[in-house]
Every structure is written in C-alpha cells, then in structure tokens.
C-alpha cells in the first residue's frame, strides 16, 4: 500500500452561530493518495467546504490532524503552513475568486508573485511569465491574457482560477464546487479539464454536492453530518492512475 499524500484524521470543527456552537465536522477522516481524483459529496451544510478548507490549511480544526506528505500541517510553523498553501496546494473555488483589478495573466502570476520577494521576482519573472502563458494556452485562454475577469465568461474565469492554482506546480489541487456556478455544458468542460489534469498525474480533491460529478473521480466519499459516511467507486469503472483509496469510517 502506498503512503497517502494527504491524510486527515478525526477532524472536528465548530463555529459559533450567535451564542450556540455549530459543530460542522464531527470526527471526519480522509485519505488521498498521489495521483488520485477524489470527490467529496454531501448535502448543503454537511461540512464539505469546511473539510476542504481544513485540508488546505485555510482553517484550523478544533481537533484532529492533517498530514501532508508525512508532515502534520497544524504542527508546522506559520511560515511553513503558508508555504504549504503557496507551493504544495492549489485552490479552485466555486466563485473563482479572481482579483478584479488584475487581468488574466496577472491573476495567474499572482500565485507566483505572492511566493516571491521583490528581488526574487526580478530573477524569475521572465520564466514565470512564460510558464503562465503556456499554461493559459493549454487551457485555451491564450487570446484572453489581457482581459479582466469581468470580461470573461464563467467557464473562462474558472479556467483562469485553475491556471492560477496550477502555476506553482502544487502536488495537490483542492477544488471547492468548481462547477457549482456554471451551466451544465461549461461545468462538463471544467470537469473534463480536471480529469485531464488528473490523468496527467495531478492529485485532485474536489468537493461537490452533485453526485453525478463523482463519475469523473476514482472514487467519491460522502460527507454527512460532519463525518465520512460512505465510500463508493464511480459507476463508469474509470481507471485510477494512482493507488486505491482508503478511508476510515468511524
């Protein structure tokens, strides 16, 4: 059995809703192996996004551990955790979350800019720009480099967000409802793109409430009431490029 790239154990997370605590994660555990495409499904409010945020170190669990490549994320220093967010993981959000003042190319380069110092950027900017243009060309956006987000369609925006997530060559891509804000056809294009990326070796963990999306994954897990309830293989018998996935169901 190969070692999981991402390993989450017994995650608990609650928020205060007024004066009452709202328990969102109640001991969720989850593994993702290298090269795997895992879909996390669940109804609205089941804690999917919270789980994804914790996995991406955007949020801190009340209890439980997340290990990435054998390192416990929440035992890391703040600097190392920021490095994890900038280098090891890429995020794709439902609402794209592009910077409206920047054009397509700049939005993609932003992930690299954040990772560079003023002087460091001067050394890598030519290479970074070349990589970004190449990536955007692969995603079919070579004609849109100078366009602002408000000049793009939903599908194009999401592809820009994917390009931004990939520019630093992260080991893990976390996608939070990437098709949730797109019509069916465009959503399908995005899923096809993610599948292609996975086939090329990109590990992807995607959250969605749409069970049909799960067909694109090696497997999907179902999150219900803050715990992983069910693990299923996709109906179309898609072949994984990675190892078989395992979850611990409490």
């Amino acid at each position: 059995m190969s070692k999981p790239l991402l390993r989450a154990r017994n995650l608990h997370k609650s928020y205060m809703m007024g004066r009452e605590p709202l328990r969102v994660l109640k001991g969720a555990s989850f593994d993702a192996e290298e090269g795997e495409f895992v879909v996390i499904t669940g109804s609205s409010g089941s804690g999917k996004s919270t789980l994804l945020h914790v996995l991406g170190a955007l949020d801190v669990p009340d209890r439980g551990t997340v290990e990435f490549d054998g390192r416990s994320l929440f035992d890391l220093a703040d600097v190392a955790r920021r490095r994890y967010r900038s280098h090891d993981v890429g995020f794709v959000f439902q609402f794209y979350h592009l910077l409206p003042e920047c054009n397509v190319l700049e939005n993609v380069l932003m992930a690299r800019l954040v990772a560079c110092s003023f002087w460091g950027w001067r050394q890598v900017r030519r290479q970074a720009r070349h990589e970004a243009e190449e990536l955007l060309e692969r995603l079919g956006l070579s004609e849109r480099l100078r366009h602002r987000p408000n000049e793009l369609s939903g599908g194009e925006r999401q592809r820009v967000a994917i390009a931004r997530a990939l520019i630093n060559h992260p080991a893990l891509l976390l996608a939070d409802e990437p098709t949730g804000n797109l019509d069916t056809e465009v959503g399908r294009d995005i899923l096809r793109l993610l599948t292609e990326l996975n086939v090329a070796g990109q590990t992807i963990v995607m959250v969605t409430h749409d069970a049909k999306v799960a067909a694109h994954a090696h497997r999907y897990v179902r999150l219900s009431s803050g715990v992983i309830r069910k693990v299923e293989s996709p109906a179309d018998g898609r072949v994984s490029t990675g190892s078989a996935a395992k979850e611990t169901i409490p």
Binding site: L58, D78, R85, H87, F91, L98, R164
Partner: peptide, 16 residues
C-alpha cells in the same frame, strides 16, 4: 476582504 482571503489562500502572510 475577499481579495485578502484570495491572497492568503495563495500563501500571503498577515504581515504581507
């Protein structure tokens, strides 16, 4: 605020 969230998701520090 949302831009701040985006930047932090890309690895920006609070100080940055």
């Amino acid at each position: 605020t949302r831009d701040i969230g985006i930047l932090k998701s890309l690895g920006a520090s609070g100080r940055g």
